[in-house]
């Protein structure tokens, strides 16, 4: 994964709350066996409306999306994160995120920035005309108008993003600990393995 440090540019002031992952990418786009090209289906239902914000030339290629509460709720489809990435979105700012979506976003190097509603409202206003900057190291969002908002982030995720770490590689390095656990589990609950043993 590419390291993530700073994200700066225009921000799409979408603002809608409870944006579900069906809205981000409808199921018919999930027939693919690839991670690529899903931007074409992103927000399809919204884009069907003339004058929608996603097709507004001011926000073409904008790296930031600003939305309402509970962004990414619903389906666990990682295609939602892939679709946003394919659109060029590298960070989403919202008052809150669904747990599964924020994990999926993180694994694709998309930063989820949770800020209080009043800060989000201010950024929605600024984004109409001006760019927004996000700095991961200092965990802050700034605007050309001296606004500065701090956001929380899990320290493990922050470290992974800053260093562009591969989570699977990290866990594979803990192989000995996993093996120890497996032996303990087999002794304590032998039925867990017996029931599912595959015939040779």
């Amino acid at each position: 994964m590419e390291p993530v440090r700073a994200i700066e540019g225009r921000a799409i002031p979408f603002g809608l709350k409870n944006v579900d992952t069906d809205l981000i990418i409808p199921a018919r786009w999930l027939k693919t066996i690839s991670r690529e090209g899903l931007g074409a289906g992103a927000f399809e239902a919204v884009r069907a409306e003339p004058g929608n914000i996603f097709d507004d030339p001011r926000f073409a290629g904008a790296p930031i999306l600003i939305a309402g509460d509970n962004f990414g709720c619903g389906s666990s489809r990682e295609h939602a994160a892939w679709a946003l990435a394919d659109m060029g979105v590298r960070a989403v700012i919202a008052p809150s995120f669904s747990d599964i979506f924020s994990g999926n976003a993180f694994k694709n190097g998309i930063l989820t920035v949770a800020l209080p509603q009043d800060a989000v409202d201010r950024l929605l206003a600024v984004a109409q005309t001006d760019p927004v900057s996000i700095d991961l190291e200092s965990q802050s969002v700034t605007t050309p108008f001296q606004d500065r908002f701090s956001f929380p982030i899990d320290p493990f995720r922050k470290d992974c993003l800053l260093r562009g770490l591969d989570e699977i590689g990290l866990t594979l390095a803990r192989d000995a600990a996993i093996s120890t656990y497996e032996r303990r589990l087999d002794a304590a609950q032998p039925w867990l393995v017996r029931g599912t043993a595959l015939s040779a």
């Binding site: 666990s76 699977i168 594979l172």
Partner: peptide
């Protein structure tokens, strides 16, 4: 029991574990 994304599916297949914060 909980839902996971595809990167986590890959993580489980490779390691039989997940990296999680307690809820």
């Amino acid at each position: 029991a909980f839902g996971i994304g595809t990167s986590e599916v890959e993580h489980v297949l490779a390691t039989q574990t997940l990296l999680l914060q307690p809820s």
